[in-house]
Design a binder for these strands. Structure first.
Lengths: 205, 205, 205, 205
DNA sequence: CATGAATGAGCATTCATTCAT
DNA sequence: AATGAATGAATGCTCATTCAT
């Protein structure tokens, strides 16, 4: 039983959930949080408006869930890429490349990620501890890589936690340039430029 | 008297304008564009709702004006600091320091700047050419410093335009960490860390 | 059952539509287009404000719909009465009588019809081609009757199109007197007076 | 003194009053009662908004005054023309012609006269006794002409009061056709058609 | 479970009117 | 008298949320 896992009911429930989440991601990406309506999401998902509320408590919950899903997928992909890299340098490069690649494939999602994530993180009233946690988790991942790199002498000795967060946000900012303004360019060149910037700094010698 | 320029009327007009702009900045910072209501701004400014519309044509205009004012002041301050700096290194340090200092004094404004600037720049429908221009202007300023530094051998030879934008965004990202999470800390330490990050990169040697 | 056509849903939808249209007619008649508020119409209809918007896209649409409904019913009734009349004289009498009778039963509607029809037809910006068409349709109907009467020697030879419009407007004018000022009098006497006026003119001999 | 009549003050007062009334007539004609704003009228009159309120108590008062003025001019002209006419037939023709001519010269005014007069007369809540009186006065004028014509055997014996009002409104309706739809046509042909309609009726023989 | 009709709080904006100067 | 800045009530419309079926 327990092994069988999913009953027909569970499958349907999961299916609907996925369906709605996907619709939400699409609509939120297109119109932003305020511009999106539950109606539009319901239509996109092919269900009735009321049904959305059977699966999610509120518009905000739905938004958070759709963000969470995308963020988790991103984080999983980044973590996976990180594991395949050997050196510290390789790991940092992988971190950058993985994010660029993920968002190159999920451009619509980047828009909500970038514009609305800020809201959630910044807005005193809106701050979502959950996303703070997700953020921290990734920042920690990066922090470990940096700390290890410093310990092994591959990186200059600096304040790892603080630098990790700056690094993380820098990648997000560079991504914004690439995704939102660079139309459909290949991410290779920006990745290289960014990595060099980060690795060598800009000072001569 | 007449030569003094400002009549009593002008003074009042300017006072009200400032009053409303300040209120707008506060409220927009607290609640974001959509969360802010004209009513709340009017109350904050200590005027009636209708009065706001005597000074600004619409909520959006008011928002843009409150952004514009802050951005122009920021840019003016940055440019001034840049002029006082001698070396390329000094100029880049000044760029960072000026921005950190400005936003340390205008924390509320940073919220709008950070969270809503993206909206304006990204959102196809909302894109404000004016802000794109302001951004470009600053980026150009930075670009020149970088180009000069490269030419004079003080900086590594890299793609100046692209790097200027990365640099610019990096400072914004670091500022977000400092302003939004670092509560009321002195900006000195973050400025130093950031400058080192930029100057030397993170790679050893 | 299924063959009966109307499902419970359809019935409710039609009921609500009628309910709101009726309320709209009442309120528009009492206060005119600008004086009427959606809120007042909603209250009159016994529904919430938002509900009105489920059935009609805008205040203007609701107004037009309430006009359209009444005008169509009027026109149908007039046309029906015209068909039962034999002679040209009988048809003209029927035209007058049908309109008097219809509006005697729909006094509230006459108010909108009379006061706002002008707006719609006159106001360049507001002009509703649809109503112009409805007007023309009825005028044509009358025109045919007149042309036929002239051809058969039952009417004096005059410019039928122009006279049809004068005739039409005359009836409207006489109706205004009757409906708006004659309180609840029987329409019989006005009908007779009007018909004689039309038929014989006022000149002696 | 009393003969001197107007002091400088009175002249200015009258001048301003006229100026504002003229502006009001223009703006009300262009945009209707609701569409017109006191601001627009003040601008048109070349005075400040507050000044309008020194001369008129409210928007409605101003509207009524601007109507009154036009209506009085119309009535004066009609009465004058009536006096020059000899026969009953001539007087009725003069009544029609005078109104057509007046409004041919004051087309803008006809719009408010026609559309807004209806409001005032019909609207239970808005009914302006004053205009009812003006209306009655003119109707009485017409009634006397008709009564006299009947008494002298120049007109068929009919209900003079009722017919006077129908006649009056018919002319208004025909005017609407001419002024609002007939662009700038000469009023001669419509006057003739209308008069014949009224005089002979439409019945043959 | 699913539906979608109904709700009603919320909000930007307008503009007649007032009143201090 | 004249001004015009300030007011704030009023209103069309939206949309997240509920709930009877």
């Amino acid at each position: 039983m327990a092994l069988a896992g999913k009953t027909k009911k569970d499958v349907l429930l999961e299916f609907r959930t996925t369906e709605i989440l996907e619709a939400a991601r699409t609509v939120f990406a297109e119109r932003g949080f305020n511009g999106a309506t539950i109606d539009a999401i319901a239509v996109e998902a092919g269900v009735a408006k009321g049904t959305v509320y059977l699966y999610f408590d509120s518009k905000r919950e739905l938004f958070l869930a759709s963000m969470r899903e995308g963020v988790l997928a991103l984080h999983a992909e980044v973590a996976a890429q990180l594991r395949t890299a050997g050196s510290c340098e390789g790991k940092l490069h992988a971190f950058i490349a993985a994010r660029f690649n993920y968002f190159s494939r999920n451009r619509a999602f980047f828009r909500i990620y970038y514009t609305e994530f800020s809201h959630l993180v910044c807005g005193a009233a809106n701050a979502q501890p959950e996303f703070q946690d997700l953020y921290e988790e990734q920042a920690k991942l990066l922090e470990e890589v940096l700390a290890e790199g410093i310990a092994m002498g591959q990186l200059r000795p600096f304040d790892a936690p603080r630098t990790a967060r700056i690094f993380y946000d820098l990648v997000r900012a560079a991504l914004a340039q690439h995704i939102l303004h660079g139309a459909g360019d290949s991410p290779d060149e920006p990745i290289r430029t960014l990595f060099e910037f980060v690795w060598k700094g800009i000072g001569a010698k």
